[in-house]
């Protein structure tokens, strides 16, 4: 503290003058500046600088490496996705082909079964028609026989004559046009 001063404008009694311009302090100032500045220079140059640079370089390398890794992972993922898509498309195509083939095979079987059934039905129909024709002939024969018997009986009742079966049959044929 400036003990000898009484106001801010007054110059201190001891060591008069503007302090930074006191040349007698210069040697000490330069001396200690050189020591401290050189010390700081060596520390920053040899220890702090390389250390910070090392960390920065490592970090940059790490970031670049991670980015490259992420990039390659993305490429891998895209490749896998493309492979999946193509496999999916192939499988879908195969499934469609298979379904088409099945459809055609089943369609063929159905047609064949239908044809078989139709054929069997035709045979049955033919048999049945034959049976019907036979029955009809038989029935017609029975009717002719009955008419013949009736004609013989009528003649015998009316005339007392016995008509031969052949005669009666031809007479019935003549009447019925058979």
């Amino acid at each position: 503290m400036a003990a000898g001063t009484t106001s801010s404008t007054e110059v201190p009694a001891k060591g008069a003058g503007f302090p930074p311009f006191k040349t007698e302090t210069f040697p000490s100032q330069i001396f200690w500046l050189v020591i401290t500045f050189a010390f700081l220079f060596v520390v920053l140059w040899r220890i702090a600088g390389p250390r910070i640079k090392g960390v920065l370089v490592t970090r940059r390398g790490q970031i670049d490496g991670d980015l490259a890794k992420a990039q390659s992972h993305r490429a891998d993922a895209e490749g896998a996705s493309a492979a999946y898509q193509s496999a999916l498309a192939a499988a879908r195509g195969r499934a469609q082909a298979l379904a088409e083939e099945n459809r055609q095979r089943i369609g063929g079987e159905i047609d064949r079964a239908k044809a078989d059934a139709d054929a069997a039905a035709q045979v049955e129909i033919a048999k049945a028609e034959a049976r019907i024709a036979a029955s009809r002939g038989e029935a017609r024969a029975h009717v002719a026989k009955a008419a013949q018997d009736a004609a013989i009986a009528i003649v015998a009742r009316l005339t007392g004559d016995t008509v031969a079966a052949d005669e009666a049959a031809s007479a019935v044929r003549a009447v019925t046009g058979g």
Binding site: M1, A2, T5, S8, E10, K22, T25, Q29
Partner: peptide, 8 residues
């Protein structure tokens, strides 16, 4: 003195 602080 405001210059006091600069005294070595």
């Amino acid at each position: 003195n405001p210059m006091e602080q600069f005294t070595i």
